[in-house]
Design a protein around this nucleic acid. Structure first.
Length: 564
DNA sequence: AAAAAAT
């Protein structure tokens, strides 16, 4: 009998055998170490790709891997893992959670939007300031790049999805959406870099959903209590997974496309049950996904993109398009960045001075939230306690708190109940919290990338934000990259910081590793030559639809954007 | 060195 995730949850003894009774616990082998000849083609979505369950069965009697559905032009290779023919049963003809979920009433994900509109006087989803997007440079590289669109109407996403887009109050596509959606709909693989809050979630969700809806004759194997998602979205934290899941639910409302989220810290049984009811799109964090996969023996892949990851990802993307969208806001003109010299022993009182002044001047008023980053989990607890004791309503989020506590903290912060959130880097990436007016780097990170991610929690979607950092002798390694970053963003750099920066660059190696950066958040590593030993075969801007001559703006090296 | 991500 074949093992399903649900079975394994009930009985771990089933872990040792598959449908052929073989022991099959092969360790994960990274793609570049594998024998490529024996490797089946691995497709992908813009976010990530996951093979179907139990890949060891490919080539077996029931598998017709590939097949007509595999290369369908409208979906390209996104229909991966669905090439099984199960004998005429139209598995997906009744959409509704992979065909298994009929009869359950779908909760309206837009229901609460009005309520939050009222309490804050502003819709969360209309926060994007489109004027700020108008001059954003966009660059594409790769062969035969499909042209961008200017409106949602130009893309045939289907009535239901279009309706959801309207319900989300999206009027026109953001730059990353304008470029990424046509590329994805054309069936091309894509590697894209754009800040969160710039519409990236929608950019990869729309084509996935519309693709799954069109894929009417794709059949997934019908094995009781086994999940066959068609798309996988991986994210680095549990809360970000939840956020993406919530968004994806809105986009897929009444489409019959079922979105399920799986992450740690919460009981696995409920998640297994959801998966059992059918899943088209799975949103997950890595740990829980591996757990699920081990229970059912499947393999996995992921994709986010610093250079090593690009290299890894390029092993399973084919002739992909690289898309770089210029920065909006984050670390640039929309965030006012300040650095203050504060001794370790003075940090608490200094922070409270700031918070106090903020309260009086009403910078933050009733709507402004303050996010305070610290380096350690203990430090987060201690600071939260200190603030509360001193009359500042704060809560905290970090990896040692239970998932329940984490989610409660986030809700409490978002709602303005506790307008101060003390956080470790768990909150640094991707979280879209409207109305964060101020980010305080109580403890600076060692890596400038982390700094960029953190301050990117404010100044989102075209709005202004403030970022304050406490700097002292323990942050010397950050002096130069920070000074450079601030200068490039036209921020005032204190003279003392410039002196530290000069000192830091003297003896030590140049920590500013990103030679050849640009005002784009990332660049196509295929163009960098190192990997190809100078054979710059994509050189010269092949097939770009970018904005010509738009380089030379305010940013040069050392700047990265939120690759979240 | 720390944080995150499985139990």
């Amino acid at each position: 009998m074949r093992t399903s995730w649900a079975d394994s949850a009930d009985n771990s003894a089933t872990r040792s055998s598959n449908s052929h009774g073989q022991s099959n616990r092969a360790a994960y082998v990274p793609p570049h170490l594998r024998n490529r000849q024996s490797e089946p083609p691995v497709p992908s979505n813009s976010a990530a790709a996951m093979p179907a369950n139990d890949r060891s069965n490919y080539g077996g009697p029931t598998a017709s891997y590939g097949g007509s559905s595999f290369n369908k032009p409208d979906l390209g290779r996104q229909g991966y893992g669905s090439g099984f023919q199960t004998g005429g049963g139209a598995w997906n003809s009744n959409r509704g959670g992979g065909g298994r979920d009929r009869g359950r009433r779908e909760v309206n994900p837009f229901e609460n939007d009005d309520a939050s509109d009222q309490s804050f006087g502003e819709a969360e989803n209309t926060g994007i300031n489109f004027d700020a997007y108008d001059d954003i440079p966009v660059e594409t590289s790769g062969e035969n790049v499909p042209p961008p669109v200017n409106t949602f109407a130009e893309i045939d996403l289907g009535d239901t999805l279009n309706q959801n887009i309207k319900r989300c109050k999206y009027v026109k596509p953001t730059p990353v959406q304008r470029y990424a959606i046509p590329i994805s709909l054309a069936g091309r693989d894509l590697m894209a870099c754009a800040q969160t809050g710039s519409g990236k979630t929608a950019a990869f969700c729309f084509p996935i959903i519309s693709g799954i809806m069109r894929e009417t004759y794709v059949q997934r194997p019908r094995v009781a209590r086994t999940a066959y998602p068609l798309a996988l979205i991986l994210s680095p934290t549990r809360e970000l997974s939840c956020q993406i899941h919530d968004e994806a639910k809105k986009f897929s409302y009444q489409t019959g496309v079922k979105v399920v989220v799986a992450y740690g810290g919460a009981p696995i049984n409920q998640q297994l049950r959801e998966l059992e009811r059918g899943v088209d799109i799975l949103v997950a964090t890595p740990g829980r996904l591996v757990d699920l996969l081990e229970r059912a023996r499947t393999l996995l892949f992921s994709a986010t993109f610093p250079k090593e990851i690009q290299r890894l990802a390029s092993d399973f993307l084919s002739s992909y398009v690289f898309l770089a969208v210029g920065r909006v806001g984050s670390s640039t003109d929309l965030i006012a960045q300040r650095v203050e010299y504060v001794l370790e022993s003075d940090k608490r009182s200094h922070l409270m001075d700031l918070l106090h002044a903020q309260r009086e001047t009403g910078i933050d008023g009733k709507q402004g939230l303050t996010l305070v980053f610290v380096e350690t989990k203990k430090g987060a607890d201690a600071l939260e306690h200190c603030l509360c004791v001193n009359g500042f309503p704060a809560t905290s989020i970090h990896g040692d708190r239970t998932q329940q506590e984490r989610e409660l903290a986030l809700r409490s912060f978002k709602s303005g109940n506790t307008p101060i959130l003390v956080a470790t880097d768990v909150a640094a990436r991707g979280l879209d919290i409207p109305r964060v007016a101020h980010v305080v780097n109580f403890d600076l990170p060692n890596d400038i990338d982390d700094y960029v991610h953190r301050i990117g929690r404010t100044g989102r979607a075209g709005k202004m934000g403030l970022a304050t950092a406490f700097f002292n002798e323990s942050n010397l390694s950050l002096a130069k990259p920070l000074a450079d970053l601030m200068q490039e963003a036209n921020q005032e750099v204190p003279a003392w910081l410039t002196r530290y920066a000069a000192k830091a660059s003297y003896g030590g190696g140049n920590r500013n590793r990103r030679a050849g950066g640009s005002r784009f958040g990332g660049r196509d590593f295929r163009r960098e030559g190192s990997f190809n030993k100078g054979a710059d075969y994509y050189g010269g801007g092949t097939g770009g639809h970018g904005v010509p001559g738009s380089y030379g703006g305010g940013y040069s090296q050392g700047v990265t954007s939120a690759w979240d």
